[in-house]
Design a protein around this nucleic acid. Structure first.
Length: 206
DNA sequence: GCGACAG
DNA sequence: ATCTTGTCGC
């Protein structure tokens, strides 16, 4: 399925610029055994103030298998997307986009299924090789797989572990990196990801 | 064959 | 992803 759908990915974009994106959404899922809670939090692209959110409780329907991660989270994320009252201009996914063994990680998959612009911002590398970016915030290096640049290793805070940014759908890599830096004025991870993480975690506890 | 492996 | 213990810093 991934090898078939990847042909529909638009990795050129260029996609909305950080200053033109009205609504930017963060998506995340928390687990407790086979119970799960998905959250999508939409922030105003300029003020980064929350404007909408959607929470869905459910049960795991697919195990975590490296390379097939999307099949675990996509069903519940699509359900949560359907409950939003606004349409995001960009989805910031917690995981990889093109930086995937078959070039079709969660961000690409969600982008193709929804038609919305998406990027992947992961906490860890999954595939590819890279040199550590300089210690300054904003520094970055190429993430290379089979001689091809599949993502960027981006330092979002000085001397802090970098994040792994890759194209999802309808956004180019440079724009994806620009969004990542725009969304990390203070912390390592995007405010969108942080907001969604907190939201699904508290929803699971409740 | 062995190790590594987004979340 | 989740869990646990300790440490650092605002």
């Amino acid at each position: 399925m991934q090898e078939e759908l990847r042909g529909q990915v638009d990795g050129v974009g260029p996609g909305p610029s950080p200053d033109s994106a009205r609504y930017v959404a963060g998506l995340d899922v928390a687990y407790d055994g086979d119970e799960l809670a998905a959250a999508i939090v939409v922030l105003d692209g300029q003020s980064l103030v929350e404007v909408d959110r959607s929470i869905v409780l459910g049960r795991t329907g697919f195990p975590y298998v490296p390379g097939l991660f999307a099949f675990r989270e996509i069903p519940v994320l699509l359900e949560a997307l359907g409950k939003l009252s606004v349409t995001p201009d960009l989805l910031v996914c917690d995981g990889q986009g093109l930086a995937h063994p078959r070039r079709f990680g969660l961000a690409c998959h969600l982008g193709v299924l929804t038609g919305l612009p998406t990027i992947g911002v992961a906490k860890n590398a999954f595939v590819g090789t890279f040199l550590p970016p300089a210690a300054e915030r904003g520094a970055s290096s190429d993430l290379v797989l089979d001689g091809e640049v599949v993502g960027a290793v981006v330092r979002t805070q000085k001397a802090v572990k970098p994040v792994f940014v890759s194209v999802g759908h309808r956004v180019d890599l440079a724009t994806a990196v620009a969004h990542t830096l725009h969304l990390t004025p203070k912390y390592r991870l995007p405010e969108t990801t942080r907001a969604a993480d907190h939201a699904c975690r508290s929803a699971l506890t409740s």
